[in-house]
């Protein structure tokens, strides 16, 4: 079985994140860039499965600029067998449908039994690429899973949205996405980090995929304006001297919040 995990670099959510006000693109130099944490949970599932099922290959697939190499390599250090990075100047600022078209072409190029993604990234936070891929590849999607069961023929899982719990099942090949309910990822150990340096790491352009992707032939979402919100100013700050609760109640009443 070949499991392809969609991996993505994102600015660290524990630090400030910036958009470049000239280009509207993420400002990579101002934030720490890390493998997005939901992606690590997806990888953890795939790698754990591979450890228990001989003959399972785990491929990490990413679409990013070449400076994302270090983040993608972390997937190898965790235990993925090889990595494919689609990097192409024509894809800078790609919207979700273009991203899905390129990833679909890459998945077809690599070949897969199961595709695993995080349910949504912490930066774009759209959560729509796995569904778009299911449509483009004509494979079933079971997304936003809280649990997953996988065998050679099928994948099933539980999706909990508000009060509704669905049990879903799909024949392979299929695409799934996992939520934060999945276990934390392992930390790469020294052995893993050393081994990662010898694992195959392909960097491909759109042309290398042999796919017919014309960026301008279809409508695309584009950014038209961007502005930074002024930082929020602090208001009143008091130290409780026994009447802070009453003062708060007054503040709420004065501002018609009760």
């Amino acid at each position: 079985m070949r499991i392809v995990v969609l991996v993505k670099e994102a600015p660290d959510t524990y630090g400030e994140r910036f958009l470049d006000l000239e280009t509207g693109l993420a400002d990579r130099n101002k934030s720490d860039r890390v493998l997005d944490e939901i992606v690590e949970r997806a990888l953890e599932y795939a790698i754990s499965y591979a450890e228990k099922h001989e003959g399972t290959e785990v491929v990490a697939l990413s679409m990013a600029t070449e400076d994302a190499t270090a983040s993608v390599r972390k997937a190898l250090a965790m235990g993925a067998d090889r990595a494919v990075l689609i990097s192409d100047g024509a894809l800078v600022g790609a919207d979700v449908t273009l991203t899905a078209e390129v990833l679909a072409a890459a998945l077809t190029h690599i070949g897969y039994d199961l595709v695993i993604a995080g349910d949504q990234s912490t930066d774009g936070a759209g959560g729509v690429v796995p569904a778009a891929l299911s449509e483009l590849l004509d494979i079933p999607q079971i997304t936003k899973l809280t649990t997953i069961e996988l065998d050679d023929k099928a994948v099933s899982g539980t999706r909990v949205i508000d009060r509704v719990t669905l049990k879903l099942r799909a024949e392979l090949p299929a695409i799934v996405s996992v939520t934060e309910r999945f276990p934390d990822a392992r930390f790469p150990n020294f052995k893993g980090i050393m081994a990662a340096k010898k694992k195959p790491f392909e960097v491909l352009s759109v042309a290398d995929l042999g796919a017919d992707i014309d960026v301008l032939a279809k409508p695309r979402a584009i950014m038209t304006e961007i502005s930074a919100k002024p930082p929020r100013a602090a208001g009143v700050k008091i130290v409780d001297e026994g009447d802070a609760g009453n003062q708060l109640a007054e503040f709420l009443k004065k501002n018609q919040l009760v």
Partner: peptide, 23 residues
């Protein structure tokens, strides 16, 4: 506190019950 319109430096277990009582 850097983004709070109204910040109270204090113990939630004394401030909040007083706030609830006042409300």
């Amino acid at each position: 506190f850097e983004i709070a319109d109204f910040g109270v430096v204090g113990d939630v277990f004394t401030v909040v019950p007083q706030l609830i009582a006042a409300l």
